[in-house]
């Protein structure tokens, strides 16, 4: 089927208010088609002459101007956002926070050990020494004798009071990791706004 025979495909008429009327049918249509098309054109006059409601142009104009103004205005929520800071500054702030967190964790650990382990007085380790200089043979104890001597000894109880200090000294980074994670979470939690508050001062 040759489509060009069904309509004239009138060129132009893309301008203002076409006034050329309805494009005539091309070839390929019979008389009844032309008659039907003419009836459609004549009766469609009712639609074409449909009066617009009173104030129609003003309402459309005002609504479209409002829409244009809204589209041009910056989004309201962007005004409340903090201004963008350089990445280097953010990293420095993060490092500072981490440093403070580690320092605080260490200070807390130290404070806890000194508070929870009261030391009544200076620890004095008393060693009983004999006036006699032991000879080399006397220092050669059997292993059974050493165990027996250790088991009967009470001097190690005083040393046990220092055990918490030893624990603190041996505390590693992994022991405070949980606290650091909490601090970092707080920094990145938008609800808490920790980071922004810190830097908005």
């Amino acid at each position: 089927m040759d489509n060009d025979t069904h309509g004239t495909s009138r060129e132009g008429n893309e301008g203002h208010l076409p006034s050329l009327g309805i494009e005539p049918l091309g070839e390929g249509y019979d008389d009844l088609d032309h008659q039907l098309d003419a009836h459609l054109s004549s009766t469609s006059q009712e639609f074409r002459s449909t009066p617009v409601p009173e104030g129609f142009v003003d309402r459309v104009f005002n609504a479209s101007m409002d829409a244009r103004d809204e589209a041009e205005a910056p989004l309201s929520f962007t005004q409340g956002l903090p201004r963008q800071r350089p990445v280097a500054l953010k990293l420095a702030a993060l490092a500072a926070c981490l440093g403070m967190a580690v320092t605080a964790a260490m200070w807390l650990a130290d404070g806890r050990s000194t508070r929870t382990v009261p030391v009544p007085g200076p620890v004095v380790v008393e060693l009983e020494t004999s006036d006699m200089t032991p000879n080399a043979d006397a220092m050669n104890f059997s292993s059974e004798a050493e165990w027996a001597m250790l088991a009967s000894s009470r001097e190690h109880q005083q040393l046990e009071r220092l055990s918490s200090l030893v624990v603190t000294r041996d505390m590693g980074f992994g022991d405070v990791t949980g606290d650091l994670v909490s601090v970092i979470d707080a920094i990145h939690d938008p609800g808490m706004q920790t980071f922004d508050l810190e830097w908005q001062r």
Partner: peptide, 30 residues
Amino acid sequence: RHVSEMSFKQIAGVLDQPLGTVLARHFRAL
């Protein structure tokens, strides 16, 4: 075509269809 008095070419533009498709559809519609 009848209410807006558009040419077939313009109708093809509105419906985003080839002109031939619009002409054929109009023919069959009648």
